[in-house]
Design a protein around this nucleic acid. Structure first.
Lengths: 224, 224
DNA sequence: ATTCCTTATTTTGTATACAAAATATACTAT
DNA sequence: ATAGTATATTTTGTATACAAAATAAGGAAT
């Protein structure tokens, strides 16, 4: 007898973590969380020792991170954590601005009511964190909000690209919310997003999200 | 005495090709040119032998291609050439449509007159190839045209993402121009682009380019 | 015949070993 | 001292070797 599962099998399957995947994830976190500062040379010997793995999976992991744009591999001269220039950051934000504009429009067309509610719920959580001044939790919810909008836009390629750029900018944007008035204006923009979401006004949502990202540039540019 | 070079040094430096880079390039070409068909399992043993390299650089190359989205690595189960579903292709074209729309707008704002002339020259070459029925040279010029528009948009991130998606779609799009009337309509759209470029009308160019990509979907969807 | 289990064989993952660069160090000549 | 050069050391790149999975093959039991 044939079972008809409500979920596609891929979704359920436990994905096996190979060593190089784990290493890639680990180093990615080290970079994003600032433990490996931009410009730092990645010392294979010591890092390999600290992680307790051999060079093979380590180097494979580096190749992945290089393709993601987090590290630069200079042949025969070792790898360094990629240092973003102001121009790099601007170009990423400019692009992200347009990507999230698109995502905002598509979400309003394609997401289910339940999904929209989920986003609004997330927004409420963010507000709460803001009122209580919890910067880190707010920041994480914020990332989650933007990721989820891209996810619910129903375009996998868009989601991938958004995720990649967001990851690259993670550190820098965290620094951006340091000043209270910057934070306040970011929250105000999120209020507008929530309002547009409620009305499923894709044009408005897209506009606000794009603006939000371009404002982010103003909020972070002095930290470069 | 200080020399002031008109070119940044990085541009001049000869970049050393490591083995894994060469391997990555080679396999990438094999995939894009269809010698390794989508869904094909990538047999390390034989491929390594054919290329005359050891497994180490080969596997590093695979990780790069995986990050680029050309192959899928299934832990402990080998790698396969990524097979694009209709949905994958649609999502890429939808995204590319918006990216090139943006690129078109930016080119009109940011490119120099000489650069615009270069693009128009490229367009003329394409027309010539079209009149003479040279499909492959036309196709290559076409890729070059789209790449260069993204390049001249002056946003490095945009350029990278556009290049990546274009590479992934390369095979499929080549198939798309097979029917003569499809080709004709693509050329007509390119005529509009040239006209908009001449006037530096970013809005028009963006609109045409976006439309061009969405029409591409209609031209390729039956080959999936 | 079909299912299940056991044992080979192949394939993949990781560690180590060796080769080739690059960098650092020490020395010489000016 | 300084520049230059030769040698030693470290670091990176590649190949090979070994371990661990996964797949295939071959029966035995139902």
């Amino acid at each position: 007898m044939e079972l008809s599962s409500p979920f596609p099998l891929e979704t359920v399957a436990i994905e096996k973590q190979t060593l190089h995947d784990q290493v890639a994830n680990r180093i990615r976190d080290l970079i994003i969380e600032g433990h490996l500062a931009p410009g730092t040379r990645i010392d294979e010997t010591t890092l390999v020792e600290q992680l307790g793995v051999s060079r093979t999976p380590f180097r494979e992991a580096l190749r992945t991170l290089a393709a993601e744009g987090l590290v630069i591999i200079r042949p025969s001269k070792g790898s360094v954590v990629r240092k973003l220039t102001a121009q790099d950051v601007f170009s990423m934000l400019e692009l992200l601005s347009h990507l999230e504009k698109l995502a905002g429009q598509l979400v309003c067309e394609r997401a289910s009511d339940a999904d929209i509610d989920g986003l609004l719920k997330l927004h409420e959580d963010m507000l709460k964190r803001y009122r209580e001044g919890d910067r880190l939790p707010y920041y994480k919810l914020n990332q989650e909000f933007h990721s989820r909008v891209s996810e619910l836009a129903g375009n996998e390629s868009l989601r991938e690209v958004q995720a990649n750029i967001q990851a690259r900018l993670k550190r820098i944007r965290f620094l951006g919310n340091s000043k209270p008035d910057y934070w306040a204006s970011a929250v105000a923009e999120h209020e507008q997003m929530a309002a547009a979401l409620k009305k499923r006004d894709g044009e408005a949502l897209g506009r606000v999200m794009a603006q939000h990202l371009m404002n982010t540039w103003d909020r972070v540019k002095d930290n470069l």
